[in-house]
Amino acid sequence: MNTLDYQILRNCAIDIIIGMLGLSYFVVYLLLFLIFHFPSTQDSIPYALAVIAFGGGIALWYLCVVIQNGFRVLHNQKKNRQPVSLWFVGLFLIWTAALPTIAFLFPAQPSLQLGYASAFTVIVVGSLPDGYLKDGTVSFRGRFSLQYASVGLLALVPTIHTLAEPLHDPSPLATAFCRLLFINFFGCVFYVCRPLERIGMTRIGQPTLHGMYLIATYSLVEYSKVVMQVAIPYMS
């Protein structure tokens, strides 16, 4: 095995390890929710579905990371780029992370819930075809990262709506979602700028990509705790 093959194998192994950790956490997260907080009334079913879609969507993203890197190892792909499908599933990740805010921030306004959910779904689905016109170049990475930022800012609209309400205390879920998006925004900027590669810390490798995955994993785990905390009262 030459040096290039070893570096590719090492990078893929790190991504697979991070992906397996995230996948394991959110699979257990879903199982614990279903075992200990299964919805007991008909009114609690939509909220339970929001939590299940949230955890399942994130687990799907990590599964995609594991599968794509596994195929990369098996087929000995030497191109130092991420498959386009990961970017598409990443848009789905933003959509599924926003679902709990739509469900739990407007519990007494089903029409508003449906409106926000429908509008945001249309926006995310409408953003997907644009990726097929791009390739895996740096220009693609930058443009698609900008698209991520735009969709993420639109996902903040329900949260801003809630925070603008003068008669209600700020929801911990709204604060947690803002923190999630801003942390991942800086992680995305970190990946696009690639400062570690630019200063020559490694000749072959993807340390900024690993860092972005770790940042995303940390922020998602912290956010999931708040989602569970807010969802439990609705399950009784």
Results as ranks from 00 to 15, higher is better:
residue 231 A to S: 13
residue 211 G to L: 15
residue 191 Y to N: 14
residue 220 L to C: 14
residue 137 T to D: 14
residue 52 I to Q: 07
residue 217 T to W: 12
residue 194 R to V: 10
residue 233 P to G: 07
residue 59 A to K: 00
residue 182 F to Q: 03
residue 57 G to R: 10
residue 155 A to V: 05
residue 91 L to N: 11
residue 236 S to V: 15
residue 107 P to Q: 01
residue 105 L to A: 05
residue 128 L to F: 08
residue 113 Q to H: 06
residue 126 G to C: 08
residue 161 H to C: 12
residue 54 F to I: 03
residue 60 L to M: 12
residue 17 I to S: 12
residue 94 I to N: 08
residue 187 G to W: 03
residue 227 V to L: 01
residue 57 G to Q: 08
residue 113 Q to N: 00
residue 168 H to T: 13
residue 174 A to C: 00
residue 18 I to H: 03
residue 191 Y to M: 15
residue 112 L to K: 08
residue 108 A to R: 09
residue 16 I to Y: 02
residue 82 Q to W: 03
residue 126 G to S: 07
residue 87 W to Y: 15
residue 21 L to G: 09
residue 144 F to D: 11
residue 213 Y to A: 12
residue 205 G to Y: 02
residue 97 A to R: 04
residue 130 D to H: 13
residue 9 L to D: 09
residue 66 V to M: 07
residue 166 P to V: 00
residue 188 C to Y: 00
residue 124 V to N: 06
residue 78 K to R: 14
residue 31 L to K: 12
residue 150 S to L: 14
residue 6 Y to N: 14
residue 172 P to Y: 06
residue 185 F to S: 09
residue 125 V to F: 15
residue 31 L to G: 04
residue 196 L to Y: 01
residue 86 L to H: 01
residue 122 V to C: 08
residue 26 F to S: 00
residue 189 V to G: 02
residue 175 T to C: 13
residue 25 Y to C: 05
residue 96 T to W: 00
residue 48 A to H: 13
residue 11 N to M: 10
residue 72 R to E: 00
residue 4 L to H: 12
residue 4 L to S: 12
residue 110 P to G: 00
residue 77 Q to N: 15
residue 41 T to W: 07
residue 115 G to I: 07
residue 188 C to G: 15
residue 131 G to N: 06
residue 115 G to P: 07
residue 167 L to P: 07
residue 236 S to F: 14
residue 207 P to R: 01
residue 148 Y to G: 09
residue 214 L to V: 06
residue 134 K to T: 10
residue 43 D to M: 12
residue 100 P to F: 06
residue 112 L to V: 05
residue 160 I to A: 15
residue 94 I to T: 10
residue 105 L to Q: 03
residue 123 I to Q: 00
residue 39 P to E: 08
residue 169 D to G: 10
residue 20 M to P: 10
residue 223 Y to F: 11
residue 64 C to I: 09
residue 2 N to H: 03
residue 29 Y to S: 03
residue 5 D to K: 07
residue 79 K to E: 14
residue 42 Q to G: 12
residue 213 Y to F: 15
residue 56 G to S: 12
residue 87 W to I: 07
residue 120 F to P: 00
residue 212 M to Y: 10
residue 84 V to K: 14
residue 86 L to E: 05
residue 112 L to W: 03
residue 122 V to W: 04
residue 74 L to S: 05
residue 146 L to H: 04
residue 139 S to M: 12
residue 111 S to R: 12
residue 90 G to M: 09
residue 165 E to V: 11
residue 105 L to Y: 01
residue 24 S to F: 05
residue 31 L to F: 09
residue 220 L to R: 10
residue 203 R to K: 14
residue 203 R to Q: 14
residue 134 K to R: 09
residue 24 S to V: 05
residue 65 V to S: 02
residue 74 L to E: 04
residue 205 G to W: 04
residue 98 A to D: 06
residue 168 H to S: 13
residue 160 I to L: 15
residue 85 S to Y: 10
residue 4 L to I: 14
residue 95 W to T: 00
residue 217 T to N: 12
residue 82 Q to M: 15
residue 156 L to Y: 02
residue 156 L to Q: 08
residue 136 G to M: 04
residue 190 F to T: 02
residue 80 N to F: 08
residue 141 R to D: 07
residue 164 A to Y: 11
residue 16 I to D: 04
residue 47 Y to I: 06
